[in-house]
């Protein structure tokens, strides 16, 4: 068994549980602070330390295995600054980031955001890319962000890196990513009715005919 402390109270739980399942093992029924239970949604962002080690650590409760003498709590939710914008009315120019999030100049490079990120992203580096107006770099470096909010929770300057990051990714996807010609072409084909007759034939085919066509269809190699 592993000794853990939930908000200061001692429990012994079996080895191999995650922070989330350990809380449930102790009898806690969770409503907040639990979402996909698989490391994608960011709902269970958590801060913990150890009995004899006050340094705070950060992780996702659904992924982190409990360890001996862990002190656990689920962090409360608090709202973060988010700029409201109409993506169609703004430009994919570097100044845009600063216009919507002027506070990012207050970053003094303490790197707490990076140390806090349970996805181990280079948060401070993408914030400095944002300051320089490099939308593409922010998009790339922040791509695996689950928007758990830990970076914002711990930023001493009250910045919200994850919202700066999604602004940049959206600007990149909307304006900077190269256009896909074959996608445009196919949409035009469908709108002009060019694809209708082939689909119509299949809709009208009986099951035997569909089975035959399915068995005989050619299959493109996977790689």
């Amino acid at each position: 068994m592993v000794d853990i402390y939930v908000m200061g109270k001692h429990y012994a739980v079996p080895e191999g549980l995650t922070i989330l399942t350990a809380l449930e093992y102790c009898g806690y029924r969770i409503i907040r602070g639990c979402g996909c239970r698989a490391g994608f949604c960011g709902a269970c962002a958590t801060i913990y330390n150890f009995k004899n080690d006050p340094v705070l650590r950060y992780d996702l409760a659904c992924q982190k295995t409990v360890e001996q003498d862990m002190y656990l709590t689920q962090i409360p939710f608090f709202p973060a600054v988010k700029a409201q914008y109409d993506l169609e009315q703004i430009k994919a120019a570097g100044e845009q980031i600063l216009a919507l999030y002027p506070d990012i100049v207050k970053c003094f490079g303490c790197n707490t955001c990076t140390k806090t990120c349970p996805q181990e992203l280079e948060v401070m580096w993408y914030m400095s890319d944002a300051l320089r107006g490099d939308i593409r770099e922010v998009a790339l470096k922040s791509f695996d962000c689950v928007m758990c909010g830990l970076c914002a929770a711990r930023c001493p300057q009250g910045l919200v890196p994850y919202n700066v990051a999604i602004l940049c990714r959206r600007l990149y996807g909307r304006y900077l990513a190269p256009v896909s010609d074959h996608l445009e072409q196919r949409i035009a084909d469908i709108e002009s009715g060019k694809c209708n007759s082939d689909v119509e034939k299949l809709k009208k085919a009986d099951e035997n005919e569909l089975r035959r066509l399915y068995s005989e269809r050619d299959i493109e190699p996977a790689y």
Partner: peptide, 10 residues
């Protein structure tokens, strides 16, 4: 295309 126009990065 709709998703990309909203800013999805494919």
């Amino acid at each position: 295309k709709w998703l990309e126009s909203l800013g999805v990065n494919w």
